[in-house]
């Protein structure tokens, strides 16, 4: 007998809101949506996850670095 596919717990209830974005912001959102193959909602959701994580780590006293893949050169992203 085959194992059954697990069903995920019911997703949390969601609320709808209207975003007021400038043309440039909407353009950036649409470009990210196309690049990442995600809906605009999913892009915003992902941005929120990253923003929250960076904010928490920053408040915990950690620094954020970008490292160049080949040169391994590091550059700190200043969060003020």
């Amino acid at each position: 007998m085959k194992d059954r596919m697990p069903e995920l717990p019911t997703p949390p209830s969601r609320r709808t809101m209207t975003l007021n974005l400038t043309d440039a912001e909407m353009d950036a959102l649409e470009k990210l949506s196309a690049l990442k193959d995600l809906s605009k909602t999913a892009v915003i959701r992902q941005a929120l996850r990253l923003y929250q994580m960076i904010d928490k780590r920053s408040r915990d006293g950690q620094k954020l670095y970008f490292e160049h893949e080949s040169t391994r050169e590091k550059a700190e992203l200043m969060l003020l």
Binding site: R4, E7, P9
Partner: peptide
């Protein structure tokens, strides 16, 4: 915290046993 029903296979007799999957 949400929970859903899954099944685990008991090795001893091969039966499927109901289990809870928690999303936390």
């Amino acid at each position: 915290m949400e929970v859903s029903k899954i099944h685990l296979r008991r090795v001893r007799d091969g039966t499927l046993v109901a289990a809870d999957l928690f999303d936390d």
